[in-house]
Simulated scan of single mutants.
Amino acid sequence: MITVSIPSSDLAFTAKVKSSCFVHWSIYSAGVSSFTQQIRGRGVRSNVTGRYESQVREAFDDGWTADDGEPRQITTEVAPETARVIITRNDSPDVGFSASINPYRGCEHGCTYCYARPAHAYMGLSPGLDFETKLFFKPRAAELLEAELRKPRYRPEFIHIGGNTDPYQPQERTLRVTRQVMEVLVRFRHPFTIITKSALIVRDLDLLAEAAAQGLTRVAISVTTLDRRLARSMEPRAATPEKRLDAIRRLSAAGVPVSVMFAPSIPGLNDHELEAVLERAAEAGALGAGYVALRLPLEIKDLFREWLESDHPDRARRVMSLVRQMRGGKDYDSQWGSRMRGEGPLADLMSRRFKAAQRRFGLDAPWAALDTGRFRIPPKAGDQIDLFAP
Rank of each mutant, 00 (worst) to 15 (best):
P264V: 00
A253C: 07
R280F: 02
P257R: 01
V256G: 14
D271I: 00
L278E: 07
D271L: 07
P267T: 04
S265N: 11
V260N: 06
A284G: 10
V260P: 12
A282S: 15
S259H: 11
A286M: 01
E273K: 05
V260T: 13
L269Y: 00
G285D: 12
E273A: 02
A263V: 06
N270P: 06
E275T: 15
N270A: 12
A253M: 12
G285F: 06
P257K: 00
L274R: 10
A254C: 15
V256C: 06
G255D: 04
A263D: 14
V256L: 10
S252C: 07
E279A: 10
M261E: 08
E283Y: 00
G255F: 09
S252W: 02
V260C: 10
E275M: 09
V258F: 01
A276K: 12
A276I: 09
L278I: 04
D271M: 05
A284C: 14
A253V: 01
L274Y: 07
S252P: 01
V260K: 01
D271E: 09
A284D: 06
P267I: 10
L278A: 01
H272D: 12
A282T: 03
A281W: 01
I266A: 02
L274W: 02
G285Y: 13
A253T: 06
L278M: 15
E273T: 04
E283D: 13
V277H: 12
L278R: 07
R280T: 08
A286E: 08
A254G: 08
V260F: 02
N270R: 06
G255A: 08
S252N: 07
V256T: 13
H272N: 09
A286S: 12
F262K: 05
G285C: 02
A286W: 00
E273P: 04
A281Y: 00
E279V: 09
A281S: 15
S265V: 10
V256M: 02
P264A: 11
D271S: 15
A282F: 11
A263S: 14
P264D: 06
A253S: 10
H272K: 03
L269I: 04
P264E: 03
A263Y: 00
S265W: 08
A254Y: 06
M261R: 07
E283A: 15
R280K: 14
V256S: 13
P267S: 07
A254M: 05
P267G: 03
A282C: 14
A276Q: 15
A281C: 08
S252K: 06
E275R: 15
L269T: 04
P267M: 11
S252L: 13
I266G: 09
P257Y: 03
P267H: 06
S259F: 03
V256E: 11
S259M: 07
G268D: 05
A284E: 13
